[in-house]
Lab assay of single mutants.
Amino acid sequence: HNLTITQGKLFFHYNPKLCLSEIHKMEEVSGTKGRQERNDIALKTNGDQASCENELLKFSYIRTSFDKILLRWEPYWPPDFRDLLGFMLFYKEAPYQNVTEFDGQDACGSNSWTVVDIDPPLRSNDPKSQNHPGWLMRGLKPWTQYAIFVKTLVTFSDERRTYGAKSDIIYVQTDATNPSVPLDPISVSNSSSQIILKWKPPSDPNGNITHYLVFWERQAEDSELFELDYCLKGLKLPSRTWSPPFESEDSQKHNQSEYEDSAGECCSCPKTDSQILKELEESSFRKTFEDYLHNVVFVPRKTSSGTGAEDPRPSRKRRSLGDVGNVTVAVPTVAAFPNTSSTSVPTSPEEHRPFEKVVNKESLVISGLRHFTGYRIELQACNQDTPEERCSVAAYVSARTMPEAKADDIVGPVTHEIFENNVVHLMWQEPKEPNGLIVLYEVSYRRYGDEELHLCVSRKHFALERGCRLRGLSPGNYSVRIRATSLAGNGSWTEPTYFYVTDYLDVPSNIA
């Protein structure tokens, strides 16, 4: 807008934040220059609390790290170098490059900038070799853009010569660093050979998330399962459950009422301010606690030095998902009996873990797994792929695949051998790939016309006998059925096997 004052003059007093240069501009645009008398524009009460600059400061050096910015700028000295009290560095987070010096300023003089007072450097006698002032900004957020400017702080001049310097606002972004852990990993099994893994992005990506790394490792069953005799009275049979499938998407929606109208769909109840505040506090606490764990609990591995020492970490090797089922080394339970199943799973520490690289999504279907087997899954978020990966501390989750139908069934015939004193040795093959492992066998036998009897055969007993022995049988026709019990439950009964026990007292003698 054009402003013209045809008559009258300007009068400025007691404006401590208004620089004289701005008042002189007002004289020019209003056409009143030359009308004012000496005392109409006070030299001592206008701009006496402001830094009124008329020179431009330029930054000469900028260096960044993930949490620091090192700045240096060209030296500046007023005509009387004693008038320079120091520099004021202003900075704040700036997602967009549209910041002005006066953003967030209120009537009390406060604003949204963080201000650092910096002492002037030592003055050199040689004007050509003056030290460049600077400042190291610490405690910054990774991968965050900051708006920065600097200006001088000078003393009051009796001659009211307006001098000083100020830089333009520059924008500097800190470097990326390792992201925080992925949030809320959930693993479920939808079949006997697959596990579905879902997660949420890290709360602090500290860069642009480029991919996720998912490692999985087959877990050995508890050692007590191999040692305890679950045929003993009072000892509860062990059981394991597989990871249940995901709930429906509708039930997972946030901010939804727990109660549904019987007449149909209901609208979600909005969260109160107290609920939102509580969630923010919980989120802040979780982030602080995660940072504490990362800094205190997890110790970084030592990389190899120039002395030739090897990095103890196993090298990563990509495998196809079809090879995942046989990740671990199978060892027989008892070496003397080769027909026992290889369900003991000690994992070799030198073995390469299978892994998958996930790009542009937060889910993965891990296939080719062994049925009813526990897996430990390790999830890392990465925001750099080359020249070397920059990934987060791992988040861990466990899951067990679903049982395989008929995996616990005894394959092959049940054979028998009759000894003296009416002892019958029953023999059968253990299931080759049971659900988890076989903890015991149930032997059901009966003599024709009598009630059915049951015998429990422990895992250890089966390994020693290759089956079991029935003792003290009365003469007669017998039928026997056997079924295995694994961590997933009972298998199917075998087809009945028949044998006849004679009275050993009636056996004919070869003595003449």
Rank of each mutant, 00 (worst) to 15 (best):
Q429L: 10
F355N: 13
N510I: 12
Y396T: 14
G322C: 07
N206M: 04
C231S: 03
V439N: 05
E451K: 05
W216A: 05
I418M: 02
F215Y: 11
R370A: 12
K406W: 11
Y259K: 12
I482F: 02
R481V: 09
C456M: 02
T288G: 11
S274V: 06
N255G: 07
V345L: 13
G207W: 02
S392K: 02
R376K: 12
S257A: 14
K460R: 08
N435V: 00
L364V: 11
I482E: 00
R316G: 04
Y375A: 01
F372E: 04
W493F: 11
K357W: 02
E281L: 09
S315I: 10
P508I: 05
S315F: 11
V393P: 01
V501I: 09
R481G: 01
D291V: 08
L225I: 10
L232C: 11
G489W: 11
I438H: 02
T502S: 08
I418D: 01
Y478A: 00
D229C: 04
F298W: 03
L364R: 08
C456Y: 02
A330H: 14
H294L: 07
G449D: 11
R447P: 12
F298M: 14
R447L: 13
Y478N: 00
V439E: 07
P300S: 07
N208V: 07
E404A: 03
P245E: 07
A484M: 05
D229I: 09
L505G: 13
F285S: 08
A484S: 02
Y504K: 13
S284T: 12
P475Y: 09
E465W: 06
F337C: 07
P338N: 05
C391Q: 03
G476P: 00
E265H: 11
Q429K: 11
E265A: 14
S257R: 07
A335M: 09
T340A: 07
L213Q: 14
K271D: 12
T502N: 11
Y396V: 01
P349E: 00
N295G: 15
Y396L: 09
P434A: 06
I482N: 00
I482M: 02
R390T: 11
D506E: 05
P244R: 13
A463T: 13
A395H: 08
Y504Q: 14
N383F: 04
K357S: 14
D291T: 06
S342F: 12
L379D: 00
D273R: 14
W242A: 04
E290I: 15
L473S: 01
P245Y: 14
Y396C: 06
F226G: 10
S251Y: 07
S262D: 14
V439L: 10
Q380A: 07
G306C: 10
F462C: 02
L487C: 12
S262N: 06
C269E: 08
P245W: 13
F337Q: 11
S262A: 05
A309G: 11
R446A: 05
R466C: 15
D323Y: 14
G264C: 04
L369I: 02
I438K: 01
F337T: 13
L379H: 01
P434E: 02
T303G: 07
R286M: 11
H254I: 07
A263V: 11
P413T: 11
Y448M: 15
T241G: 12
R218K: 10
F285D: 05
Y498F: 08
R459T: 05
E247G: 07
S239W: 15
V397Y: 10
T386R: 14
S341H: 14
D408V: 01
A399E: 10
P332L: 11
P312K: 08
R218D: 03
V329L: 09
R481Y: 07
Y498Q: 07
M427Y: 01
L235V: 09
F226T: 08
R447F: 02
A336K: 11
V296A: 13
R469Y: 10
Q429S: 15
L487A: 04
H352Y: 05
E495C: 06
W216L: 12
P270C: 02
P314L: 06
C391Y: 15
Y498E: 07
D261H: 10
V358G: 10
E260K: 01
S268F: 02
T401A: 03
G489L: 05
L228P: 08
P312T: 10
K287P: 10
Q380S: 10
G234Q: 08
P354I: 14
N435F: 00
E227M: 13
Y230L: 10
P270K: 11
H371S: 13
F298A: 15
P205S: 09
D506K: 03
C269S: 04
D229K: 04
P338A: 10
D385K: 14
A394E: 08
T497L: 12
I438M: 03
S274R: 12
Q252S: 12
T333F: 05
P245G: 11
S458L: 07
H294S: 03
P312D: 14
T502Y: 01
Y498D: 05
Q429R: 04
G368D: 05
G472L: 10
G306E: 08
P354W: 11
D250H: 07
R353T: 04
D273Q: 13
A394R: 06
T497P: 00
L369H: 01
S348R: 10
S274T: 08
N490S: 11
F246H: 12
P245T: 13
V501Q: 02
N510A: 15
D291Y: 12
Y375C: 02
H416Y: 15
T401R: 00
S203F: 07
V327N: 08
K278D: 15
S398A: 12
Y445K: 01
A381G: 06
S262V: 14
S223I: 06
I418K: 06
E279I: 09
S479Q: 10
F298S: 07
Y445R: 03
I482T: 01
G368K: 06
V345S: 11
S363M: 02
S315A: 06
L235K: 06
P434Y: 03
D408R: 00
F246T: 11
Y498H: 12
D323K: 02
T307W: 08
T373D: 03
D408P: 00
V439A: 14
T303K: 12
F355P: 06
F462E: 02
S304I: 07
S486L: 01
S239L: 14
A463C: 10
L470S: 01
E420Y: 11
Y500S: 09
V414P: 06
N422F: 04
V359F: 05
V501E: 01
N435E: 01
K357Y: 06
R481F: 04
D408N: 14
E227L: 11
C391R: 02
T328S: 15
H454N: 04
H454I: 12
Y441L: 00
I209A: 06
P238Q: 12
H211G: 09
E265L: 10
W493V: 04
L487T: 08
R483D: 00
S315N: 12
D250G: 06
A405T: 14
K432V: 07
S305Y: 09
T502M: 15
E260N: 15
W242H: 12
N490G: 15
W216N: 10
S341M: 13
E404I: 04
T401D: 00
K278T: 14
H461T: 10
L453C: 05
M402D: 06
V501D: 03
F215A: 15
S344V: 10
T241E: 02
S509I: 15
V393Q: 02
E258L: 14
K302A: 04
Y500F: 03
D229F: 12
W216Y: 12
G412W: 04
M427N: 01
L379Q: 01
R471W: 09
K302W: 15
V324P: 10
I377R: 00
S315V: 09
E224T: 06
R313D: 02
E265M: 08
D291W: 14
G325L: 04
G308T: 09
L464H: 14
D311N: 10
P403Q: 05
G306D: 14
I366A: 05
T401I: 04
P338T: 10
N435W: 00
H371E: 08
G234D: 11
V480N: 02
E451P: 11
F499D: 00
P205C: 05
G264F: 04
R218P: 12
S243K: 03
V480Q: 01
P244G: 13
Y448F: 13
G472R: 05
A399P: 05
L464V: 08
D385M: 05
N255L: 04
P387H: 06
L487W: 11
T303V: 06
L473M: 08
S458T: 12
L470P: 01
S367L: 12
E282F: 14
Y292K: 12
S315K: 13
P387K: 11
P387N: 11
E290S: 10
S342E: 05
